[in-house]
Design a protein around this nucleic acid. Sequence first.
DNA 1: TTATTATGGACACTACAGGTCTATAATAAT
DNA 2: ATTATTATAGACCTGTAGTGTCCATAATAA
Lengths: 161, 161
Amino acid sequence: MQFSKSTDYALHALLHLGNSERCNNVGIKELASTLGVSESYLSKIMSKLRQDGLVRAVPGVNGGYELSRSTEQITFLDVIQVIEGRQKLFECSNTDSQQHRLLAEEETAGRDQERSGKCECLVQKVMEGAEQHLHQYLREHTIQSVLDEAFKHGNHETNKK
Amino acid sequence: MQFSKSTDYALHALLHLGNSERCNNVGIKELASTLGVSESYLSKIMSKLRQDGLVRAVPGVNGGYELSRSTEQITFLDVIQVIEGRQKLFECSNTDSQQHRLLAEEETAGRDQERSGKCECLVQKVMEGAEQHLHQYLREHTIQSVLDEAFKHGNHETNKK
DNA sequence: TTATTATGGACACTACAGGTCTATAATAAT
DNA sequence: ATTATTATAGACCTGTAGTGTCCATAATAA
Ligand code: SF4
Ligand code: SF4
């Protein structure tokens, strides 16, 4: 249960892009060298970010990447979901066991199917809650919010034209 | 980013143990059949739970497993951490990149090393926060809280002596 | 003593993270 | 139009972790 390195790279790449909005495009070379990662691997990650609309890419001389939204509109959740996928935190397996009957069946029967066919048991309800809390927190933190913090702490060698 | 199946099994096993506190010991056979999992695999998981002190185990005839604490004192976080380990949600890799200098060095230098050598950057600070929120939520949900919910919803064929 | 039960180790299979390399496509500058 | 430059997509490799089985051994209550 850990975020992958790719998420790490993606976050740092976006932070770099957000930080250097002087000339529009940042090439994979500059990006890879500042992050200390191989160009090969990072380009895959950037490609993913592009497919999900977080960045734009343009080939050719002086090409490279740029953010497709403002930094305030790119949340940690966005980045994480692009890289890690949108699978549930908890995916139940044995819905046909005896356990299931005790914890889920009675409920949906008694409460006569609250909403559509969601059919969620008590365990999943807890896990859903955990996921929602986590997502909410990650939605509240954006690339910009990190950049702001960095500026506050006396780091002023950025955004120089 | 998903909890493993083992966590699923562990939770269900503990729920079953918490639910049947009539005769003290529940064997791996009963446990495995009610969960619909193989005895082989489940026994490994139970072994882990024992090593971390969540359950007690006794071999021999009429042996089996029993909870070593009350159901209110076994939180979702406990179970998850036993199975998934206690690694951080986010583990940074390239602390020697240029990025790192921009986001972390300046801070620890400016704030003159807030606490001991923790040396946490802004990215990690966000992730730490996420982890803390998640943990707090998971700490508030116990085996007992799920069992209580189950009872409330009209399921009364449990705890029969 | 014995039948029963948990435990630990060895092993196999699969999926995926992490990473490299190369050929191709797209673009801007000339 | 050509060319140099850059991103993209695919094939490929490696190691490791999750999932699972099987068996030999240890511990225990009857
Ligand atoms: S009780 Fe919930 S978690 Fe358990 S098997 Fe049923 S749906 Fe899955
Ligand atoms: S800035 Fe933070 S996340 Fe990035 S490399 Fe440094 S310590 Fe790691």
